[in-house]
C-alpha cells in the first residue's frame, strides 16, 4: 500500500496548469487538495512500488510540474519485502 503525500510545484502557465490538473483528476490514483499559490498537494495511492515509481515519473513529466517533493509515505503493510542485496540481479 504505497500511499504518498506529494507536493507539486507548478509553473504559472495557465494552459499548462489546466492540462496538468485535468490529467491528474482523470486518474483514480490521485486525490488533489486545494492549490496554495504555486503549490498543489496530492495524495497518491499506487497498487505497488513499481506503479508508484512510474506514477511519480509521470507526474514529473506533466507540462505545469516544475518539481515534485515527497512529504510523506506510508509503507506499513507494503507487500513487497525489503530486499537483500544478493537478491538483486545485474
Amino acid at each position: 500500500m504505497p500511499i504518498s503525500g506529494l507536493l507539486l510545484t507548478l509553473n504559472d502557465n495557465t494552459v499548462a496548469r489546466s492540462e496538468t490538473l485535468a490529467a491528474l483528476r482523470a486518474r483514480s490514483e490521485f486525490e488533489l487538495g486545494d492549490c496554495f499559490g504555486s503549490w498543489l498537494p496530492v495524495a497518491m495511492d499506487a497498487p505497488d512500488d513499481e506503479d508508484s515509481r512510474q506514477l511519480h515519473d509521470w507526474i514529473a513529466s506533466l507540462p505545469a510540474v516544475e518539481f515534485v517533493d515527497v512529504v510523506s509515505v506510508h509503507f506499513d503493510d507494503d507487500k513487497s519485502p525489503v530486499t537483500e542485496i544478493s537478491e538483486v540481479q545485474l
Binding site: 504518498s4 503525500g5 507536493l7 486545494d34 496554495f36 498537494p41 495524495a43 510523506s72
Partner: peptide, 11 residues
C-alpha cells in the same frame, strides 16, 4: 487523508 493533509500543510 493523512497523506493529503500532510502535503496540504506543507503547501
Amino acid at each position: 487523508l493523512s497523506a493529503l493533509a500532510a502535503a496540504t500543510s506543507v503547501a
